[in-house]
């Protein structure tokens, strides 16, 4: 690993411009433009079938875009001299032959880009795969070991850019924590880290920046902090035996009042103290008064709401749904 080595140039951005991929009459990726910058973890968030994997395959030149373009460090992937030196990737389907050992898999990858063979032991060490395990066939690997091998493969060329599709899928908590720490440290070294997930909770803990897509389109491109600030609105839940009277009072103050799905009112624009005082001043009984936040998960679900409906329809055509 180049930990402690010189920090690399900060020029290795992923830039997508009006990127479009059409499968069977439907745009799996639809005029998607975004930039992934070095030095931070960028989360790529969207429900299953939103086009995340397709976008990643487009970046890696595995699929050809129908329109638009995507570059890594200003170059098309296919024009990279030694791709593994610039971009390390872990795709959804791991792409390891079960009959081959981890060591052989990595050795072949290293050879394909003229990377010295001893780098294999370095990355095995880095991801914590023991030497004797690395010599056995990968068929018997647990999900966690397979994922570690996938990350080792991504790191084989000591790349400036990492593209990982759902890296924590199916991992136990220890494995998830390990990947999180690794991603953050790689970003701290000045690398570009781009990882996808369909889980907001995962992103909340790992990503500094968020790109959210649904139905192949960009929904949000913002820092995690801004995303939380703008989207995680708080409200106060209030319940009273005289709801209509209470609502009139609240609205007279100019506060937003919505019906809570569980009964009672959701009040925006104020806090519990003010509502409690107001009710007492007018002699109204209050049976519940609770400050509440809409979670990021809720916000994301709402954002991606119509994208989720799309899934059923996509199952018939999209490549994404097949995987």
């Amino acid at each position: 690993m180049s930990a402690g080595g010189p920090l690399r140039s900060v020029g290795s951005m992923i830039e997508a411009t009006e990127l479009t991929k059409r499968y069977g009459g439907r745009n799996a990726v639809d005029k998607l433009s975004f930039t992934v910058r070095p030095g931070r973890v960028t989360g790529f968030l969207g429900p299953n079938g939103a086009g995340k994997s397709t976008t990643m395959r487009l970046i890696l030149g595995l699929d050809t875009p129908t329109a638009g373009r995507v570059t890594v460090g200003g170059k098309r992937y296919a024009d990279l001299r030694a791709p593994l030196r610039t971009v390390g990737s872990l795709l959804d389907a791991k792409g390891v032959h079960g009959g081959r050992s981890a060591h052989q898999h990595l050795a072949a990858l290293a050879a394909s880009n003229g990377i010295p063979g001893r780098r294999v032991d370095d990355v095995l060490d880095l991801v914590g795969l023991p030497a004797d395990t690395a010599r056995t066939r990968t068929k018997g690997f647990s999900l966690g070991m397979g994922q570690r091998l996938g990350i080792a493969a991504a790191l084989i060329g000591d790349p400036e850019v990492l593209i990982l599709d759902e890296p924590v899928n199916g991992l136990d908590t220890e494995g998830i924590r390990w990947i999180r720490g690794l991603m953050k440290s790689l970003a701290a070294q000045g690398r570009t880290v781009f990882l996808s997930s369909h889980l907001m909770s995962e992103m909340e803990l790992t990503a500094d920046h968020l790109i959210v897509i649904g139905r192949g389109r960009l929904i949000a491109d913002t820092t995690m902090r801004d995303f939380i600030r703008t989207n995680s609105r708080s409200h106060t839940l209030v319940r009273s035996p005289e709801p209509e009277k209470l609502r009139a009072l609240l609205e007279a103050r100019g506060w937003g009042v919505r019906l809570d799905p569980g009964g009672g009112w959701r009040v925006d624009g104020t806090d519990a103290t003010a509502i409690g005082d107001l009710a007492r001043d007018h002699g109204l009984a209050v049976h519940e008064l609770t400050p509440a936040h809409s979670t990021l998960e809720e916000v994301y679900t709402a954002l991606a709401g119509d994208s989720a409906e799309y899934r059923a329809g996509e199952a018939a055509s999209g490549k994404e749904a097949v995987r």
Partner: peptide
């Protein structure tokens, strides 16, 4: 069959 074709082509886009 194993999906390594994607690994192979990503390693060598030619």
């Amino acid at each position: 069959g194993s999906g390594t074709i994607r690994t192979t082509i990503a390693a060598n886009p030619g």
